[in-house]
Design a protein around this nucleic acid. Structure first.
Length: 204
DNA sequence: CGTCTGATTAGG
DNA sequence: CTAATCAGACGA
């Protein structure tokens, strides 16, 4: 894993993360998934970002750290979202991981999500069984066992890290407006959401 | 302290 | 479409 990865400009990093594997190892076992959808939050100038206007609170503090730190926050009273801090310390930017394609530890992830674990017939999971497992920011945190306890960790920590999986070409990547940021005025329309074209594990 | 809100999700 | 459900932000 290239240590310079996190020094990429945020929009570039948001695209580069697509196709990489996120791995979390816990006492329960190992779980991983391929990143298939990201959203960039561009700091003080971006009305949609938690750090808009240079806002600096205990929650957003980690956004002012070196890129590559983990920013986890709790939302809607029941979900957590996983972000990777980006940009130099004076530019509090972050990338929200919105969806994964499940890879390792699928039964564990299904268990964490309280899903019924289907019996394998031919040794492979049917796409339909995997589709709803990690296709949303809250879902992937639950499945991966990521919680507020992981706030402030550095990727690549021993138990939480990224791995190269596959490199995508520019035409495999699509962009569009971000989800659920209607409060963000002008920034509502910014095409800061990136996903792998035609990938069925992208959120709705 | 009290009140408000949300980078979501499951269910109908 | 809406209810669920609470940490964090902010005002008094």
């Amino acid at each position: 894993m290239n240590e310079k990865l996190f020094e990429l400009p945020t929009l570039k990093l948001a695209k580069t993360l697509l196709g990489m594997e996120l791995v979390h190892q816990t006492d329960e076992g190992l779980a991983s998934g391929i990143i298939v959808e990201t959203e960039a939050y561009m700091g003080p100038e971006d009305m949609a970002a938690h750090s808009f206007g240079g806002k600096r609170t205990p929650r957003t503090e980690i956004m002012y750290a070196e890129p590559g730190h983990v920013y986890v926050y709790f939302i809607y009273g029941m979900h957590t979202c996983f972000n990777i801090v980006s940009g130099p310390p004076h530019k509090p930017e972050a990338i929200l991981i919105r969806a994964l394609e499940p890879k390792e530890g699928i039964p564990l992830m299904m268990h964490r999500r309280s899903m019924k674990i289907p019996v394998l017939e031919n040794g492979a999971w049917k796409p339909g069984q995997l589709k709803k497992l990690t296709n949303g920011p809250g879902k992937l945190c639950k499945a991966m066992g990521i919680s507020l306890n992981d706030y402030g960790l550095k990727l690549n920590a021993e138990h939480l890290y990224l791995k190269e999986y596959k490199t995508l070409s520019e035409e495999d990547i699509v962009s569009g407006p971000r989800i659920n940021v209607d409060y963000a005025g002008e920034a509502v329309h910014y095409p800061y959401r990136f996903w792998i074209k035609d990938n069925i594990y992208v959120s709705k």
